[in-house]
Design a protein around this nucleic acid. Structure first.
Lengths: 188, 188
DNA sequence: TGGGTCATGTAACCTGTTACATGATTAG
DNA sequence: CTAATCATGTAACAGGTTACATGACCCA
């Protein structure tokens, strides 16, 4: 998965591992986070497969950097991946896994957990609002032609709809738990 | 993650690896799928940590089975995990990763991909509607007291809201692509 | 007699996480 | 002088995937 993400980024232009890390942080982090160490490892794996090639570039006043660019084989692989059907569902959710078993804890403990989850989601929405600004920071490394930015916008739309739905769900859980907690209090 | 899911299930009662696999298939598969081989491996790991214990049970006309049950240490670990804050966001989305790079393919190819994604989601919704029925198939292995089923219902609610949101999103993508495709046709 | 269900796993591999390690320049 | 930024990685570990392997019973 990460391999193809990197391939897709290099398809926009040559980049160093460090550049790729920055783009992930600013533009893809809301649906995929990647560790720096993993990016460098995947870059080596991609090179071994012949999908990317690199050249060292000396810089004055900065350490040398390795510029990676996509090869013809890499482009072919990128297109193969894109054409190769949809990714399988469902996506794993650690949050739901925990929710499923919350019967083991008290309603008031769970209520607190959902409240903090809500606050976290609000933060992510704020973050997403800055996505268009973030993307402009590295103009060259991110799609700017109309066709590419159309799809980039789709992912942002998804993020917004997703977090809004998430907050609605969390609110419905909070409501249910507040009811349970109020029964408990009146029973005392 | 899987470790704690298994621990949570065993907290409802003793089960074999095979039982656990069935519960995953019928009740948790919409937010977590687990391979049989992985379940058996995790069971061994859980045993090594002293969180579960097993006993062999001979059966007439069937192979022997290993019944696993949770230990006191296991219960303590389950509660520790539940109390230990929320799982980190965001969850990874392979579908969004692919969407991001679709500029490389033609709008009509992408339109087809979204249409098949839509059909897939509809199937998942139908499946989720059967979740309550599926859960009854293994009564003993799934929560039935009011407190536990409250949380189980929350995960189903999430699933429903999630897939509805997903279909809305896919529809908005389809609409955008149909516009682009119609421009292309009139330009010919 | 062939497929489904019950029942258990091993081995190799791939992907992701965490911790550690280095070193120069530049801005406050 | 110190923290941030640019720049590159290694090692160990944890978690998930795929393929393979076995064996008995039951039903059609």
């Amino acid at each position: 998965m990460l391999k193809h993400g990197i391939l897709g980024l290099l398809n926009y232009g040559a980049m160093t591992g460090y550049d790729i890390m920055l783009v992930f942080k600013d533009s893809l982090q809301f649906f995929w986070q990647a560790q720096t160490s993993q990016i460098y490892r995947e870059l080596q794996a991609l090179k071994k497969k012949g999908w990317v090639a690199d050249e060292s570039v000396a810089q004055s006043g900065k350490p040398d950097k390795k510029l990676f660019h996509i090869t013809d084989d890499g482009k072919a692989e990128l297109r193969r991946w894109l054409s190769d059907g949809n990714e399988k569902f469902p996506e794993r959710s650690p949050v739901l896994m925990k929710t499923f078993f919350r019967g083991e804890l008290s309603p008031s403990e769970n209520l607190e957990a959902f409240k903090s989850l809500r606050a976290e989601c609000m933060g992510y929405i704020e973050n997403l609002k800055n996505a268009p600004i973030n993307a402009k920071k590295h103009g060259a490394n991110v799609p700017d032609e109309a066709s590419a930015s159309l799809y980039w916008q789709m992912t942002i739309d998804y993020g917004m709809m997703y977090y809004k739905m998430y907050i609605e769900w969390v609110d419905s859980c909070i409501k249910k738990l507040e009811e349970v907690c109020s029964y408990e209090n009146t029973a005392d």
